[in-house]
Design a protein around this nucleic acid. Sequence first.
DNA 1: CTTGACCTTAGATTAAACTCCAAGGTTTAT
DNA 2: ATAAACCTTGGAGTTTAATCTAAGGTCAAG
Lengths: 153, 153
Amino acid sequence: MYRIGELASQCDIKADTLRFYEKHGLLAPSSRSGSGYRLYTKDDASRLRFILRAKAVGFTLNEISELLSIELDKANWACADVKGMVDNKLEQVTAKIAELTQFANSLQSLSNACCGGPDSAEHCSILEALESEDKQLSAKNETSHKGHHHAVK
Amino acid sequence: MYRIGELASQCDIKADTLRFYEKHGLLAPSSRSGSGYRLYTKDDASRLRFILRAKAVGFTLNEISELLSIELDKANWACADVKGMVDNKLEQVTAKIAELTQFANSLQSLSNACCGGPDSAEHCSILEALESEDKQLSAKNETSHKGHHHAVK
DNA sequence: CTTGACCTTAGATTAAACTCCAAGGTTTAT
DNA sequence: ATAAACCTTGGAGTTTAATCTAAGGTCAAG
Ligand SMILES: [Zn+2]
Ligand SMILES: [Zn+2]
Ligand SMILES: [Zn+2]
Ligand SMILES: [Zn+2]
């Protein structure tokens, strides 16, 4: 039996987090001491580790709730259900990566176009690009003479 | 002069969003009609487009506020400042991509290990992997016989 | 028997970017 | 004149995952 602080430090999380998980139905201690302290069993600890592993692969707490309810009633679920959740998540993650990659490419183009020097930003290519649609930066702009209108040191 | 709904539909956002931007100091209409309607000028519209372009490359609204204050006082800022913000953001975005790529890899491994069939999840490799540390899935697991303990159709 | 570390609760706060609502005033067209 | 479409305000709700606060009980050591 672990008290909340013990289990928390064992798993490198805060006691607050454990109370939060309890409030949201992810993990309740199996019992309480006479004075009301939460007491977690080894099974509770395993369940927590399941939660943390699922978090580590990107599932949200809501999704982990679903996963836990499957876990407790495996016989009534199919591999297809479980794999479906994983594939679904993978799709979301992949979509987010695509969006961020777009951002990264645009940012890289902006960065490439700017000299980054100490001179006034009055003709900064980054600002100009944000000001008007037409002044787009291409991703292959790396060898440009930095697009600036002032001399490069 | 555009009314809020006009400008919003022109830029493919909602009037609510414009009010939100105003409340957060990003964009205020230059004037109001006698009856209190917001009236936006062409300059206001340009500023909005600046905001939307900055959003499209991944900046948060707070960062866009900074960018806007530089934009309005270019002479007192250097290219280095602007490029610094861009490079900083690029670093953040890159870090997030790395994290998500980790997630994607783990999820792919989990997915690869599961047959995804209609049989009971009692021996589902995904669940087993989440249950215990040791049963890790490798990313190169694709050619495995799906790790399941039940027959594949 | 007191100090310090630990525990309890309910509820507020954080960040991000909207989105929606109610209750009412204005414009425009028919 | 009346309906439809638009506008106003303040404030609440959404999502995610905690984190923090206040006010107080419990426990082991010295
Ligand atoms: Zn420059
Ligand atoms: Zn520049
Ligand atoms: Zn299977
Ligand atoms: Zn399976």
